[in-house]
Design a protein around this nucleic acid. Sequence first.
DNA 1: GTCCAGGATCGGA
DNA 2: TCCGATCATGGA
Length: 271
Amino acid sequence: MRITIHDDFDLDKIIGCGQCFRPRRLADGTYLFPSAGRALRLRSLGAGEYEADCRTDEWDAVWARYFDLSRDYAALRAAIPPDEPFLREAAACGAGLRVLRQDPWETLVSFILSQRKSIPAIRGCVEQLCRAFGEPLEGGLFAFPAPERLAQAAPEALRACSLGYRADYVRDAAERVSLGALDLAALETAGDETLMAALLSVRGVGVKVANCTALFAYGRASCAPVDVWIRRIIDRRCGGENPFCRFGGCAGILQQYCFYYALQEKQALRD
DNA sequence: GTCCAGGATCGGA
DNA sequence: TCCGATCATGGA
C-alpha cells in the first residue's frame, strides 16, 4: 500500500538514534522493521510518500502506533523555551526521529543486554539470539525469541550468543514472563509507578533499563533514561542539572533528541 | 596489552 | 545511604 506521512519522519534517524537494534536499511534502500512476530518493509518514494508492504488495516492497527504517528513532534520542539539553547540545538538536529513503541519483551531483553556493551555489540547479540532461538519469518528473517523459548534454553546456548554474565538475567526474565509472574501485556494499562516497579523487580534491570523499556516499548514519554551519554551531556552542557525534569510528559522525547545528538557528535569526531 | 561500551549487583564502610 | 569492585565479551 501507499501512504503519506507528514515530513516529520526520518527513517535514518528513527533506526539510528539508539532506541532499537534490529530495524535496518537494506541495500536496495528499503527499511526493514521486525517487531512482535511481524516485519514491515517501508520504502520512501519522496515527498512524504511511502510504499509499505502491508494492508491498510494492518498499518492502522499496528504500524501507525509503532511509529507514534499520533504525536506532534514539531509542536513539541517548538515548545522548547529559548533559554534552553542546548535542547533546542539537539532537537533541531534530531528533527524527524520518532520514539517507537516496540514490543515490550524484545525491548526488555535488548536493554538488559545493553549494559556495558556498545550499540554494535548489542545489535550483534540480539541478532544471534534471534537466529538461535527465534521462529523463522519470510525472507530469511527471524522473529525475536518468545519468553518460553528462552526460558527453556540451555545456559551454554545462551552464552554462545555473547550474552556473557547477562545470560542469567535473560533466563530469569524469560522464566518470570513465561510463568505469568510478570505480565508485560497487562502493564500497558498500568500507571507509570506500577510499570516501573514491575520492571525493576527483574534481576539485571535497574532504573536506566526500566526507563528505556518504559519509554521505547510502553510509550511512557515522561520516562527519560540517564545513561553515560546523557550523564556526560548533563555535566558538560547543562551545568550538571538534569534539564529533562523540567519537561514532564515529553522528557523522554527530548532525551532521545539529545542522545541522537551525542551520537552525531561522536560520529563527527571520527570523520 | 589496554581501555571502554545506552549498568546492575553486591559487600562493606 | 553511599562507594568501589566486579561482572563476560568484543572492538578500537
